[in-house]
Design a protein around this nucleic acid. Sequence first.
DNA 1: CTGAAAGCGCTTACAG
DNA 2: CTGAAAGCGCTTACAG
Lengths: 328, 328
Amino acid sequence: MARVAGVSVATVSRALRGLDRVSPQTREKVLRVAEDLHYVASPTATSLASGRTRVVAVVAPFLTRWFFATLVSAIEKSLRAQGHHIVLFGLEDDTYDQRLTLTQNMLWKRVDGIITLNVPMTAEEVDLVDRLELPLVAIGSPVPGRACVRIDDRLALRTAVQHLADLGHTKVGYIGSVPDNVAHIQTPQDRLEAFKASVVEFGLTCEPAWILNSDWTAEAAAQDSRDLLRGDHRPTAIVAASDEMAIGVRESARRLGLSVPGDLSVIGIDDYLLSEVLGLTTVRQDVAAQGRAAAELLLRALLDDDEPTDEVVLPTELIVRESTGPLS
Amino acid sequence: MARVAGVSVATVSRALRGLDRVSPQTREKVLRVAEDLHYVASPTATSLASGRTRVVAVVAPFLTRWFFATLVSAIEKSLRAQGHHIVLFGLEDDTYDQRLTLTQNMLWKRVDGIITLNVPMTAEEVDLVDRLELPLVAIGSPVPGRACVRIDDRLALRTAVQHLADLGHTKVGYIGSVPDNVAHIQTPQDRLEAFKASVVEFGLTCEPAWILNSDWTAEAAAQDSRDLLRGDHRPTAIVAASDEMAIGVRESARRLGLSVPGDLSVIGIDDYLLSEVLGLTTVRQDVAAQGRAAAELLLRALLDDDEPTDEVVLPTELIVRESTGPLS
DNA sequence: CTGAAAGCGCTTACAG
DNA sequence: CTGAAAGCGCTTACAG
């Protein structure tokens, strides 16, 4: 390449990367030759020489669920627009209470930075990332001392409970608490706490038996809510910690012959892909915006070399549709 | 690292990679030192020296949709189990009729192989991949001369139509044909053709107005089917080319006061995440299995250096739930 | 503005 | 079985 352009490799490097100290004519000639030869610099050689890979790791507990897929998509777009690529790490294991752990050979000299999607890092993982001196931005579950993008879970839950209170409901249930073995995950904890606090704040009642464990899928939520809905001592409204669970609860109710919202109001959190078409009332969060915000924070660390530690809290919004209604 | 182990870098390299011609004692010592020092070989240096990156490109038109997210997840697991990483390329653009195109600097010296998820490659892209001598496995939309993993779309559609015929329906509609500007995508074409052929085969009728365009989302399908369902000259059953569209059609019917399956039967294709809980009849395909199969084919090309050109066709299965019923 | 040279951290024949 | 040396293809001071 340098040979056919009749210049040194150093000049080729400078011309192609748009550095100054190259005469316009030389630059133009180099660019033309590069074009002719389909020349593209080898990224592995560039990385070895420069020490930067222009790759970022995106780490998620699940890749298939809507929330995570939406984040990944938004992050990929933002990062690629700035010449970065993403390598994906799905941490899901077959069992629900353990996951793969981040290791040095996933990261070392392989990526310039990390975005975690709602993954609570262990102390060892935090140490590792510190030792590797990698910038990190967390979405959802925060990582101590690092930048974080999230919504205000407390506020979101309060909004949901308030909506039910406004409709006249006094007996409310909740689905989305999580067994002890996965208690390290932040979001379920936060939402449950916030739910309970809001119930008190608005003077409603929620019996312990009305708080249901579920694994955050629609299928499981349908199953896990059946017993409660079948009995006659039940709440008149249920808050689900995610729209997918809300969909499951509503289906369960319908199968038992309950009308929604006539006999039972159901509200979720997210504004999931199908929530609009299914007429589900929800507290909306803008997932793609969270992905973009995280990508931008990380890019700032990468390009300007100053690592931000901001906490970005994005707004949520009540969307009233057909799954909630006044107490009859 | 070599220094503290008291051996040459060549020996370290051989010991760590498990090559032969290293004495057991030496190997053990090297491994111990590596452990102590948290030593992990720099993948960029390894790649530059060996010419292999152990990274594969996964290329998808959309990352957020269930089908693609499920594939990505399965592929990532399979590949990582064999020491490979994936870098993700989402090709979606804001408009629906164009997409980003694969370029040399996405691939060159960056990945060892490619898996395409239902993306019809342009002639230029095929040329590029040929020129870079990259192995490629396609899922869904085939790439000429390359290995391909898919289901039998004709058979799947025939199964759906037959199910409706068995229930006594004679007037059937279809949703999921696609406007001319995206006609290059294979799946919608195949499914529409197969639907038409099956309608003839089983002696049913489908008027041209009963074939609806839609962009394969639930939301759009709900909208796109409204006019047809509102009229009184309509089919008694509809085949949707995807479950997400089937869900949209059913919601649309319900909102218009039609009972499903009393007034209208709806069947989809996929067995989408929510299809079971929503009681949707469908022709199931195993998406994760397609991802795993593609990963294995590519791995074979990568590890054994013989590129397979097999066509793997995975089975589909009729799952009858509550959205279809006998003609009343 | 441009080039020669060292260096990034590995792997791979080649000797021994 | 082990080591010295060349080479992978770039970037980056350093001279000029």
